[in-house]
């Protein structure tokens, strides 16, 4: 297992290198000048030039690239071109918020999606099935940020139940959870839709299998048949889809953070993109890529837990 993990981490290096090279190049190819963004329309060419010089933006591209790589290898993410704040400091401050938001979405998705998927599969073509399918179709069609705005309108403005702003006081767990409810729900509902759909489909396939018929013929209770035999077999594709959509969810969290004015990596990334803050953007993109790789690895490791036949040699 340990060798497998080490091998996967080593294999991730070329993936990350490709991502960061692409991000680095695309940012430089994209039009827009960080000097104009920060100094404004008012600044003279001399001032703009002085800024570019100071920030090293005038250096040849390959030198900028090598400097970025060598800094990264030494664990130095650099400093924001705009505010001068170290990127590592920004990431350290924002990461917990993004992780708690994404984790809450995944948790809610799994919590509601799996039972709903099983239910709709078992009650195939019933009213419950149609309702579940309609819900999952709606969830797949509506972007999380829009769902966030709807939830905010209904539960905050109309019913006055939840706050719309920020992530709560850092030291107050209840306040943090209170502020997390709506954004978590916005992501969780979308995740629930994905998981419901995949669970239903996986369960329908498994329920047609001979060993399920045999289990029923042996007189096993329906719940044992469903949860011990059918669901366990269906778990591999379900875990796979949760893994894949967790990465998608990480992407969706960007706009949810914006809508709920929460701090987070997504907000940092989007702001850096608008401001052409190369230093922040390329580092945050690498972190997102690293997360994607990590989530894939975790998904693969989970396979072994639910299916003992899988070996990591």
């Amino acid at each position: 297992m340990a060798r497998y993990i080490v091998r996967r981490i080593l294999l991730a290096i070329p993936t990350l290198l490709t991502v960061l090279t692409l991000v680095f190049l695309l940012l430089r190819v994209a039009p827009g000048d960080p000097a104009v963004v920060i100094l404004g329309q008012y600044a003279s060419e001399e001032t703009l030039q002085a800024f570019r010089e100071r920030m090293g933006l005038n250096r040849p591209l390959w030198i900028q690239y090598l400097s970025f790589l060598s800094d990264l290898l030494r664990g130095n993410l650099g400093e924001s071109l705009i505010s001068g704040v170290p990127v590592a400091e920004q990431v350290r401050a924002a990461l917990p918020y993004t992780l708690e938001l994404t984790a809450s979405g995944i948790f809610l998705g799994a919590l509601f999606g799996v039972p709903l998927g099983v239910l709709t599969a078992v009650r195939r073509n019933s009213f419950v099935d149609y309702l579940g399918r309609t819900f999952s179709l709606a969830g797949l069609s509506v972007p999380a940020f829009f769902l966030g705005i709807l939830l905010m309108y209904l539960l905050s403005i109309k019913l006055n139940l939840f706050p719309t702003l920020g992530a709560g006081s850092p030291g107050n767990l209840m306040d943090r959870l209170f502020h997390l409810t709506l954004p978590g729900l916005a992501l969780g509902l979308v995740m629930t839709a994905y998981v419901t759909r995949m669970t239903r489909s996986a369960m329908l396939n498994v329920l047609r299998e001979d060993y399920i018929r045999t289990a029923r013929a042996k007189g096993l209770r329906e719940q044992v048949v469903l949860y011990r035999h059918a669901l366990r077999s269906a778990l591999i594709p379900i875990i796979s889809i949760i893994g894949i959509y967790s990465i998608v969810l990480l992407g969706s969290s960007v706009m949810v953070e914006i809508v709920f004015s929460r701090p987070g990596l997504g907000k940092i990334m989007l702001t850096a993109m608008k401001q052409r803050d190369y230093a922040v953007l390329q580092s945050v993109m690498v972190i997102y890529a690293a997360f994607a790789v990590l989530l894939n690895l975790l998904t693969d490791l989970l396979y072994g837990l639910v299916d003992p036949r899988i070996r990591y040699d």
Binding site: I149, M152, Y153, S156, I157, N160, P163, T164, L165, I258, V259, F260, S261, L270, T271
Partner: peptide, 13 residues
């Protein structure tokens, strides 16, 4: 707060 709806909702609340 770059999102206008969020600013509006926060003001209303």
């Amino acid at each position: 707060m770059p999102d206008l709806s969020s600013r509006e909702f926060a003001l209303q609340r």
